[in-house]
Amino acid sequence: MKSLFAAEERVSKLSKRGDPLESLGRHVDFAALAASVDRALPRPHRYFGGRPPYPTELMIRLLVIQQLFNLSDAQLEFQVLDRASFQRFLGIRDSGKVPDRNTVWAFRERLVQAGLGASLFDEVNRQLQVEGYLARCGQIIDATLVPVPTQRNGRTENAQIKQGETPEDWSAKKLAHKDVDAPWTEKHGKQTFGYKLSASTDCRYKLIRTVHISPANEGDQIHLLKVLDRNNTSRDLYADRGYTALAVLEAGGWRQHIQRRAKPKQALSATQAGRNRRIARIRARGEHPFAGLRALGGKFLRSVGLPRANLQLHLKVLTYNLKRLCWLKNNEVVAF
């Protein structure tokens, strides 16, 4: 049966079913996110004509959708044309102009060149604080490896890359497809080619407060100091056996709850094992954000180079935080 109000009826049913994008649009100030981008990367002038660029807020919303549903640029374009919930979230239900895959790629490349991933992440954290979700009850520091497409290079080429050189026979087109920033590293006997993401998660709300992205072979101890959240209201710091207590943190008044590692041929004492279990109960909350990132497709990147990986992972983490914020709001987790 035909209905003149079919579109409105379907949208109403989406709202009743609990459209996550509707919740996202209600709780997040995307205009502020767009303003932070426009301040650092002013929109191009059109004094000499040409098609005006799409609004920055629309493009930011597109990138959030892309991260939330782990879509390629081509799939993002298709899904925006096809899905009513996407069109409502973007505010383009009555518009015939939709950003295509090339527009999305070009906008993301502008963000990469300007290095704005951290700025967007900081703006999201500012909104979390405005909502009252301050970093409380201590922090959990952990790291995860993020693989990227493996490079098939010869031994000579790999030796030149390690020395910071570019093989002479590589054309500009070939170099654009080669990731010379990502190294190999080994963890638990498994080789991984890619980058490392370290994060500090607050124990109270399980929101990621600070991040650091680097080549995969950079040590966890270096990351520990770089992701330390000095705005947390508690001085408690939790970490697994991969980290060791640092004198500089102890001198700064930090209470380091780091699990003990057994020495070769010497098992942990009952007291040490019990301490590890007590820390593990709290530290397990720091694994939940990484599981959330994995659900968003954050455990593998389809990009080339550290700058692009930096932006992609910052977008992935801020999307997790926005999704977590909506959950806290919808489940009435009171900020205090």
Rank of each mutant, 00 (worst) to 15 (best):
I65S: 02
L306D: 01
R83M: 08
L58N: 02
S72T: 14
R108E: 03
D179P: 05
N217G: 04
Y133F: 14
T103S: 10
C137E: 12
N102D: 12
K263S: 11
R51L: 09
G274P: 00
L175A: 14
R230F: 07
Y243D: 04
P289S: 01
D202L: 06
Q256N: 07
M1N: 11
V333F: 07
G298N: 02
R155A: 13
P307Q: 06
V112N: 07
E57N: 08
K174V: 14
Q221K: 11
L207K: 01
T192S: 09
T233F: 04
A291H: 11
Q151I: 08
R152N: 12
F107N: 06
A199P: 00
V211R: 02
S3C: 09
G219T: 08
R241T: 15
K196C: 05
E131S: 11
S119F: 00
I141E: 01
V180R: 14
K16R: 14
A295E: 13
H212R: 15
W105N: 12
L249F: 09
D38L: 13
G164L: 07
D236N: 13
S36R: 12
A239C: 04
R241K: 15
S72G: 15
N331L: 09
I282M: 00
D38R: 15
P44D: 05
H177I: 00
V112L: 05
F336T: 11
W254R: 08
I282G: 03
L71Q: 08
F290I: 10
L197V: 06
L58E: 03
N276T: 07
A159G: 03
L41F: 01
E332I: 11
E250T: 14
F290W: 06
L228P: 02
W184M: 09
V146H: 04
